[in-house]
Design a protein around this nucleic acid. Structure first.
Lengths: 137, 137
DNA sequence: TTTACAAATCGTAATCATTACGATATAATA
DNA sequence: TATTATATCGTAATGATTACGATTTGTAAA
């Protein structure tokens, strides 16, 4: 998802596109991977001195609710990234830089068949490791 | 894994098999699914009045380190279960009761091929929903 | 069985991520 | 530009987890 798409969603749902919100979106638009609240805060502090924790967390949760961001629990911390709007897929996640690589393989159809009578609401398939770039450094 | 196996591992690594530790292991041996530190504490308080948070968390982390328990981040909280020692598989996890059902399908071989040059350390494949038993209640 | 000591536990405080809230400021629009 | 609902600030509260000095307890050797 890009900036314009995200701002459109916000306005569509009656939320204001404030300067801080746009800056947060811009951060994620360029991140290309998962980021924590702390990452976002550190970046936002360089743009808006004295910005509140509340603003960061409130907006992260808002973005998650309206489908602008997607989230995953990693090392006891929530991580956020721009929502993928292309076809269903999963991610390799680099433990060093948080960047992701798409993984198109997903066995959920087969799995669902083996879980008759179970109500399936969601699933997570994540691969963890170190990306080629971080292996060099 | 069963009690005896777990106790064997503890002693093998030079840790003491105390009464509290055995009771924690017994709890997990009968749990058949994921449990949080709070669950464990609530159970242990019925057996040992005034048991410390420290004891619960220290031992949970110890069990994780030595491979007696496996752990997953869920809803911002660590969840623990007895380590599966049978062949490689994944889990359906019931959001209500925490119990799991084995899922034997895993596409990691294929996935690894599509990630040449990426160092793969680990992966997680979890299916979330409600088990047949909890759907009735 | 007793002794000795490393390891385990207790009691409690500290830390870290996250959420909450009243007061104030601001974006949207009329 | 005036209005008003929404967003933000400043800060306190919460909840999970970790930390640590003092005390107790398994374990194994004497």
């Amino acid at each position: 998802m890009n900036m314009n798409e995200a701002i459109r969603i916000l306005k569509e749902k009656g939320y204001k596109a404030t300067g801080r919100r746009k800056d947060m979106l811009e951060y994620f638009a360029h991140a290309d991977g998962y980021r924590t609240a702390k990452h976002v805060l550190q970046h936002m502090e360089t743009l808006h001195e004295g910005i509140s924790f509340d603003t960061i967390y409130r907006n992260l949760n808002l973005y998650d609710e309206v489908g602008i961001l997607e989230t995953t629990d990693l090392d006891g911390e929530k991580h956020f990234r721009m929502k993928c709007t292309t076809s269903h897929h999963h991610h390799f996640i680099c433990r060093d830089c948080g960047k992701t690589k798409d993984v198109d393989i997903c066995p959920m159809e087969e799995v669902a068949q083996s879980l008759a009578n179970y109500r399936i609401d969601d699933h997570k398939f994540e691969i963890y490791g170190v990306c080629p770039t971080c292996q060099i450094g």
